[in-house]
Design a protein around this nucleic acid. Structure first.
Lengths: 211, 211
DNA sequence: CAGCTAACTTGCACTCAATGCAAACTCGCA
DNA sequence: TGCGAGTTTGCATTGAGTGCAAGTTAGCTG
């Protein structure tokens, strides 16, 4: 008998197996990217390390880049969820700030081994940087949409985009600065420091916002 | 005797020839992307249409995507230039707003044939969307850096990122909305309407900013 | 103008990501 | 037990992108 949560149906053998393979791929890729570099690691090698056929890799990830972001929409999803479950007494700015803080507190992917590898590759491999920026931008747009839907009277489309742009811009910049100072791997694994920085960034953005 | 501007040294035959070939490539690509679609057009075909060898294409553009953005850093360059040549009496917010308006007024690439094709592909081809978002994001970061450098006392790094994020987010959203309403080609070629929209967006962002 | 150099062009061979297809295999269920 | 849907895999193929080496051309200099 497997312990299981309420609400999540029992994962079948198939699903568990698939999840295990998926994780094996991510781990293998992280290790090899770290050791040999991104461009120097081929999809065939990753697949071989996870003991599956090359062709099968593409049944798990649509592209080589995608394995770097195994749960790419988690951040946007959590943020939007926090916006939906907002405190009705709060205004748009506070709701968004709180949502971003919630993400910093709960995002498990931020402290995964792959996250550390990703941060290092972000600075050196154009393809990785590009993919990351793209995901970031899409997330920002989705969040803006959700925020506008939550405050149809207070915000119009452009206003929501401005607000979201300011806050995510601030958070990004703060994380970027953090990476300048310290080793990427350390940053990725130190969740407390991350959380602290996000909070500082949102506060600073607000001060700029109101001045 | 060729008429030439002051300040720009006479382009040599080599340079003129190279520029002509480059333009031929862009024109050929725009036409074929429009007619057959992006994925359905190969680099070899574009090169053949411009009457050069396939290998030579990569001497002009580093990748197939790059030909869609023949002057990708023009926008950032113009914006930063406007920040550098700012009115010393104005504060950071006004300077940035004015800089974005200047770009909307002078950006020649916005009304090129390739721009129209690009806008259409942006919505349908993931690779194109990705590249565009990536360029956009890099520009945003560069602009934030320039703004902070121009106002070291008023803004810190995170504050500059917040301000820049708000304005560019607003402008993006406004242009996006404009594209929803009308045909992409029309938008690209109607510089007046574009300019008007950018102005509306910055005004709206400011109103949100101050509320 | 002869001739040299550096920049540019090109073909060739090669690597690798990514996809379509068809055959084999396996879990889940009746 | 056996059927059907979901998975795995190999094979063949396409197309982007690179390194190299040989050829071509612009532009300069004596």
């Amino acid at each position: 008998m497997v312990i299981r949560e309420h609400g999540t149906p029992a994962p079948s053998l198939r699903e568990r197996k698939r999840e295990r393979t998926r994780q094996a791929l991510v781990d293998a890729a992280a290790e090899m990217f770290e050791r040999k570099g991104y461009d120097e690691t081929t999809v065939a090698e990753i697949a071989a390390a996870a003991e599956i056929g090359t062709r099968t890799f593409f049944g798990y990830f649509a592209s080589k880049e995608d394995i770097l972001f195994p749960d790419s929409d988690a951040r946007a999803r959590t943020t939007i969820e926090a916006i939906v479950n907002r405190d009705p007494a709060e205004g748009p700015v506070d709701v968004l700030v709180r949502a971003l803080e919630t993400v910093a507190e709960t995002d498990a992917d931020m402290v995964s081994p792959m996250a550390a590898v990703r941060m290092r590759l972000f600075r050196t491999v154009p393809a990785v940087r590009g993919k990351a920026l793209q995901i970031q931008m899409s997330a920002q747009q989705e969040i803006a949409r959700a925020l506008q839907a939550a405050f149809p009277d207070e915000l119009d489309r452009v206003g929501a985009a401005a607000l979201t742009g300011a806050l995510t811009g601030a958070v990004n910049s703060a994380l970027d600065a953090l990476m300048d100072d310290e080793d990427a791997a350390t940053v990725a694994l130190d969740a407390d420091r991350l959380r602290e920085r996000v909070q500082q960034a949102t506060e600073l953005a607000l001060r700029t916002w109101r001045s």
